[in-house]
Write a protein that binds this DNA or RNA. Sequence first.
RNA 1: CGGGGUGUAGCGUAGCCCGGUUAUCGCGCCUGCUUUGGGAGCAGGAUGUCGGGAGUUCGAAUCUCUCCACCCCGACCA
Length: 569
Amino acid sequence: MLQSQLFIPTLKEVSNEAQIPSHQLMLRAAMIRQLGAGIFSFLPLGYRVAKKVMNIIREEMDAIGGQEFHLPALNPIEIWEQTGRVEAMGDVMFHIKNRDGLVLAPTHEEIITVHARQHIKSYRDMPQIWYQIQTKFRNEPRPKSGVLRGRQFTMKDAYSLDNSWEGLDESYNKHEQAYRNIYTRCGLKFFVVGASSGAMGGSASQEFMVESPFGEDTCAICEDFGYGANIEVATSSLPSVSRLDENPNIEEFPTPGARTIDHLITKFSIPEDRCAKSVVCFVDGEPTLILMSGNDALNESKLQSALKATNIRHAEENELFDLTGAHAGSIGPINLKTPLKIYADKRLENANGLVSGANKDKFHFKNIDLSRDCTISGYFDLRTIKEGELCPTGCGKGLRVVNAIEVGHIFKLGTKYSQALGAMFLDETGTEHPIIMGSYGIGVERIMACFIEQSHDDKGIKFAPSIAPFDIHLLGLGLKKSEAVQNACEELDKKCKEAGFDVLFDDRDVSPGVKFNDADLLGMPVQVIVGDKNLAAGNVELKNRRTGERQILPIGEAIDSIKVMIKGF
RNA sequence: CGGGGUGUAGCGUAGCCCGGUUAUCGCGCCUGCUUUGGGAGCAGGAUGUCGGGAGUUCGAAUCUCUCCACCCCGACCA
């Protein structure tokens, strides 16, 4: 296609509102323009990339037997009320103001389940994999980082319907493999982590992650990728606090100035893991004391799922005093002013010889035996793992803690939605069961942005052929001046097309520098440069945008070399 | 929702504290000539509700109030 006739308004500079490379480059390379907070228009070049990503997704979904739907974004709120998600979503869901009873869909579990209820009646009707690529609306409180977190975005969402739990496992595994194929084909470096199902419900879930300092998720990954987990669920191999043979009675002792665990460790020579740190939280409104070993950080996600709670908040300073009789630093499980339910981290299970606050300012107890001196309602894994701790698989390697961008998430939903909406089937014996479901999502814009994050330099984007807007950027230098260059370009353009390549022919009457810089910015995998100097000797130049490698070769050999170069990506 | 910041031509910006000529500069755009292998040169030209509204003042981009939009940090994140 002729660049002179296309709308590709590249920018030399962008406002400092765009702070991360992918956002800056998508603006500069004329892929997107911002219309409002978290709202973006795709320009032709950007949409070409989006379409290539969507086609890869489509091919891989079709390959596992997926059937493409197109569901409405406008949904009757009534359906969402039946699963309790109007409340669960809260402000995230957009509500239509001038037509009662309609919302904009943030995802489509409910709608899929409704259609399944209408027609999936027998175990013989399953398995099914239904998917769509569609616009989602989520009223994010704070959109950020360009297209990485928007209020309107494109998502491939898929849903599996099965008649058995084994069937669900199979559908889930198919999706996992399809997702791996999709990211690999898009040229993304990614990893997979175990994740929390959160408010989606269900038994298991995994997230597909791209490491990035701009990621909003934190993951623990083993150096050799044998283990990966979202920090919300990550565990590590760490010894429990051992039980001491000597077990004297508890004893109060003064600890002036000791407000932190570190003070107890340094000023009173107490081993870190013998310190039982107390945290007071309101769990669904009920004040609860949580005991952690040493400086272990309480992981609220773990607490939430362990106690099956929906809302957790830390107690405020004045509430702490009212409940326990002491201020932060002197709180503990014994001698509480108000009896509180007490949970403890698994590392403290059955531990003794512990030091904890006396619920009296500037005093602690020592020799605490949790099984003798306290009533612990339950021991759970509640700690947040730290960088460098050993991999829980026992491989002996350390864990890295990294920021990451979530580009996909797969869930074993189970029967939460089918039960709520009454999507039932009859098994071989005529017994009725709820359909067993899975749900699988991929963010299309996130794939694009993540690719650019991983593949750019100070000049611009370095696209892989699989998702590049064009395969080849043909640069004609001094076209007006030289008929030979013009003819050579037209000839090459034609030959490249015949060879099956998409070609962007820069036929604009602008200086060579402009063309080179635009070409590097836009980032097509191969640049073919035709200028009169090389052409005088019958040569053209190829440039590999990724490696920067250049070849000057006879025009007749260009096509074959381009093929080799593109294959090498 | 809390905290911080920004809003000036198509884009990027200076000026604002300390009110006072015709609102600065670069890019882009239009006309002409020259130029053409890494964002060309010269000459001429067009383009502004200084985010909106209200106020203070002889006079407001500049001070005050208010509303709006956007960005960043936090909270939140199916």
